[in-house]
Every structure is written in C-alpha cells, then in structure tokens.
Write a protein that binds this DNA or RNA. Structure first.
Lengths: 337, 337
DNA sequence: GTTAAAATCCGAAACGTTTCGGATCGACTA
DNA sequence: TAGTCGATCCGAAACGTTTCGGATTTTAAC
C-alpha cells in the first residue's frame, strides 16, 4: 500500500505538497502536480480514508438502522424500497452507507447511538423502529449527530422525520369504501407502537364521522402488521361483526392475510367483502383478486430521507419534516354495494 | 467527545493504561481498571473506531457491492433477501456492512476495488454483477482483499463464490415437465452475461437428452431476466413454435411475464401451457395461478457468503466455493398432459 | 535596482488510538 | 543481602492524512 509519503519521496517533494496537489489546491505548480499525479498512478496509490477521516472529522458516511432487514421483511419489500431510495440519493451526493446489524442475538447489544458515535458516521437514518424501542429515545436525546426518522414523528434541532400522510391516506381509503356504499367498515390496524397506526386510525375515524357515521371501536382490530395477524383479525371480524361489508387494513400484508381467511371461509372478495389495504406492496398487484390500496412511495421516502439528512449535515436547511402524499389505487378487491 | 486522553488525565494514569484497562489486558490492577471504567462512563466516552482502525489496520467492515439495489430490484426481492442473509451473519460475527452506492450517475465512477481499498474494508461481497462488468475483473485480478462473489464462478487465493446449483435446478424443472408428459419444452433464458444462464441452459439440455430428446436451440429464447423480456419471449414462442406445451423460465420474473402474455392472448395456464419458473420469489406463491418453480434459498446465499468471507478473513478455511441445493416447488402453473 | 506581491513549497503538529520496550517497586528466594 | 520475579504502570513511536503558519523564490511594478 503506497502512502503519500512514498509519493513524496519518489517525487522529491514534501508530503504537504503531495496532499495539496492531489486535493486540487491551487498553490501548487501545475508541472509539479502533473508529476505527483504520475507518481501516484505509478504506485497505484489510493488515499486512506481512515487516516483522512481521523484528521478531517468527516467520514462521508451515513449510518443506517433499519430493523426490518430480516427474513420476514422480504414479503413486503418495504424496507428494501426505502433502502433503494436512500442508497440512490446518498450515492448521488457521494456518501456511503454503513449498515448496522442490530442483531438481537448479540450479547453486548450496543445502542444505536454508541454504534454511530464509535463509527463516526455523520448522521443516521432510522426506519422500521417501534415507538417503544429502547434505544430510539437515546439517539434522539443524546442529540449528538443529525438523524432522520422514517415514520416516527419526532423533530428537534438535530432530528427530522419523513413519512407519508397516513391520516389523509386512511381517510382516502375509507372514503372510497363509503362512496361504494359501505357503511359497516371494519379496520384491521397495526400494533399500537407505530405512529402510523394512530394516524391511520384517526383518518379512518375522521372519514366516517365526516359522513355522519360514528366510528365504532368494536370494529377496530389489531393485526400486528403481519399477514397472520391480519388473517386472525379477519376471523374475529366475521364472528363478532357479521354485518361488516368492508374492511380497511392498515397494511397490504394484513389485507393479504384477511383475504386468505375469507378464501378459507368460502367468502368471495369483493362480492361478499370488500378489502382495501395500505402501502401498495409488489404483491398487491399480483395477488388474486388484485388489491385495492393506498400507494405509499416507499422509494421516495428513502430518497427524501437521504436528501434531508445530507441537507442537515451540510447545513443547507432548517426543514425538519417531510410529508409525502399518497394515492388511491383501485383494483379488484373493492366493489360497489 | 471525550477521548482516551481525557480519561487518562482525570484518572491520573497514562493513556497506555487507559487503553489497556479498557481493552481487558491483564497487566492492569483491577482497582485502577475499575476507576478508569468509572471515569470513562462519567465522561460517556466511546472509543473512536477511526483512530483505532488507523493503527490496528482492522475495520471489521465488509464492503457490499450489490448492483440490484435499485427500484427495479424490488419486484423479485432477490437482492434484498441476499442482503438480509449477509446482514444477519455479519451481525452475529460482529462485522458492519458498508454499502457502496455504485451509482452510474456519478461522473467519477470509481472502481469497486478503489472504493474498497480507500475505505479499508477487510473484504467484500459482490452480487448481481454481470460477467462483463468492467470492474469485476479488476477486483479479482488486483487480489488486494478477500472477496466472495455470488453467482459468479470465479475462485482464487483471495476470491471465493457461493451459488445455488443452477444446472441441477434447471434439470429438476425440466424433468418435472417431462414427467408430466411434456415433450416440446421451450426455455426462456436470462441474458448471456450471467453464468446462471449458462448453467440453467445446460441443465435444461441435459435433462432433455437424458430422456432421449434433443435440445432444440430454436426453442430457447432470451428474456433478459426481466418481466417484459419474458412477456416478449412468450409471444415469440407462441408465434414460432405453436407446438410447445410447456416453458421453463430461468427466473420467476420472466415466468410472470410469460404468464401475462398468455393471459393477454387468452390462453390458460396450466390448461393450455405449463409454466415453470426459477427462484421462488415472494410473488410466485401469490400470483394466479400460483407458480411452480425451483426454490433458491436467497437468504442462505447471503448468509453463507458472509460466513465464507469472514472465515477467509480470519483464515479459518481453505474452502473457496459453496454450492447450495435447490428445491422443486410444485404449485398450480404446471399440469400433466 | 528595490520592493511588494504573488506563486510555490515545506516543517511540524495534530487527529485518537495501539503497542513495543522498558521502568518501577515490593515481595520472595537463595 | 543481593538477585529475581511478578505485578503494574508508562513514554514514545507509529498509523496516513490534513493544515497552519511561515519560508523561499519568482514576478511585477515603480
């Protein structure tokens, strides 16, 4: 591994000059610069980012803490699409991503904050975390590096968040069902430790109330954001609320579970029950019947998160919040009563 | 940011002692160690991994070069599952992952090798690369750090590869069709710059020949591993080879495309045409009809890649190749003639 | 020819660790 | 009592850069 010293020696100049030549400073003669570059190429020199970081305090690295990078997350490739967005924008802006493996099997579970601090990332993006995550609080409070949270509405001097408008999205979904003539509309919500669950519920409630219906708490079930959870919740609905004609699921995965239950029970979607999801995951347009849903632009979520974080890092913005729009995608799983 | 020096000063010992105390060396008095740890905690010290790496030459970081981390890759979450496997195993073994954004939009496109060298990763895992990738060769030849390739059969002192057995897998698929009585079996292959294409073709050929049939080159089409490519290829098959009763696709995505074409043309799967895919992506079990396919354990691919790389890094193995088994998953898209 | 300004270069410190080669000291051995 | 040993500690160098402050040389202006 050739170092800057080797170049200096071989080119007959000081390390200072080599450094400045290679980094494009203008107080070095073009002739010398040419020579230095030549020598560098000859030695197939490549700068040592570690050493550079040590003095510059910059790593051009963003920490990624994404809890859904696991086998289960492969179904809805939610985390994946977010990751793609982050990766693309970070790449364009010349930052690299450090993926922390927050593996529960690790005995010495280090906090995200420690991980990031140790590795000197300049900022971090957190996604897929529950509100009651033990370490979430720490990174926010410690406030030692900028971070942006996806789907967790906390802001501060150093912390921003990006999300899509869950409340409006949910309201759109429910209004769609209302327009189709449904009146008894159940909801299969995600677990309580996600702010999107709360938002989607309030969207559901608001849409109902705006058309003069009361939101019946007995019609709201917990599907834990999983396919099995959705399936189970659907059973509950069928048993306890046989008058329900449509169900709004806070995620496509749960909608898929719900449809599985309906199929098992011999009910047809959408003839016997309308089902609408949330997210528009890939499967939504392949399953049968194709799922009507609220599309969330997951890629954009990541893209904007990276943009926002880097803007914060480079002190280009005071914005601490980005809210994306959603879109109703009508397919085959809902029908007019 | 408290440093080791601050601790030394406050605890009234030398930096050396602090370092050794914190790192568990046994030539430090337990009483002093306790005190030092206390001071460290008081100052909420966290070690600077950058400085540490500079001297130790170890970063405990693995470079990841995955070309499919992009929007298109979200359909089959292939890269994602591989990533999960890598992430899990790397986490268990206490390595972090550095995700390089090989963004084509970058003007100064740096080679993977430079990226890795600069960042001092200890090794790298490459996935989703085409055989003719301009930079692939470089990292292999330069040989400066261990790396493992996924689905690219190159090995060397410092380079290993993991893959699933495409040839046997393809043969399984074709034999399944043969057992079902099909004789005119077309193949929609991926592009030529993937070694899996070559392997899957030879599996196809071998299976046919073993049952006394000649592999007709006219029945093999290029679907470029994309859904649209598969759709287009299917049109070609229908027009040029109307006697075909079954088609083996080298990826599920292409199979999906093929089925789309068949649907558009009004042909039923599997009544009019049997279709078998390869990969077993998530959608395969949700689409309609559900896709018969050869399951590849993508997670395991990543998991083993990480394991193998780290074994190489820590010089625990001479193994340079891992070949995983595949599995025939019979669903609804193939039928007995 | 003198002087000021520009152009070009360099020495040394600093970044935060680890580690090598001792140094110190009390206790134990012969 | 001298020598040895173990326990405990430390100074200084090293890792590969960047950068501050200045030094030297060249050029330009008068």
């Amino acid at each position: 591994m050739a170092t800057i010293k080797d170049i200096a020696r071989k080119a007959g100049v000081s390390v200072t000059t080599v450094s400045r030549a290679l980094n494009g400073y203008d107080d070095v003669n073009e002739e010398t610069r040419r020579k230095i570059k030549q020598v560098a190429a000859d030695l197939s020199y490549s700068p040592n980012a570690v050493a550079r970081s040590l003095v510059s305090k910059k790593t051009r690295t963003i920490g990624l803490i994404i809890s859904d990078i696991n086998r289960a997350g492969a179904k809805d490739a939610f985390a994946y699409e977010v990751l793609c967005g982050i990766n693309d924008r970070a790449g364009e802006l010349n930052y690299d991503l450090l993926l922390f493996s927050t593996n529960p099997s690790k005995q010495v579970e280090k906090s995200y904050a420690s991980l990031c601090k140790e590795r000197n990332v300049e900022g971090a993006i957190l996604s897929g975390l529950r509100l009651d995550d033990p370490y979430l609080h720490e990174v926010v409070e410690q406030n030692s590096f900028p971070c942006v949270l996806i789907d967790i509405p906390i802001t501060g001097a150093n912390v921003a968040h990006v999300a899509s408008d869950s409340k409006i999205g949910a309201a759109m979904a429910v209004r769609h069902l209302l327009e189709y003539g449904h009146r008894r509309i159940a909801m299969i919500n995600g677990h309580n430790q996600a702010s999107v669950s709360q938002d989607r519920y309030s969207g559901y409630k608001e849409a109902l109330e705006q058309s003069g219906l009361a939101a019946d708490p007995a019609l709201v079930y917990d599907g834990a954001f999983s396919e099995d959870g959705g399936a189970e919740a659907m059973y509950q609905i069928l048993i306890r609320n046989p008058d329900v004609t449509a169900v709004f699921c806070a995620s496509d995965l749960m909608a898929l579970g719900a449809m599985r239950t309906l199929e098992k029970v011999g009910l047809r979607v959408p003839e016997d029950m309308s089902v609408i999801g949330f997210d528009d995951i890939t499967i939504a347009s392949y399953c049968s019947p194709k799922l009507t849903t609220i599309r969330q632009d997951k890629y954009e979520l990541g893209y904007q998160a990276a943009q926002l974080l880097i803007d914060m890092l480079e002190e280009r913005t005071d914005n601490r919040k980005i809210l994306l729009g959603n879109q109703l995608i009508v397919r085959e799983s809902t029908r007019r009563l």
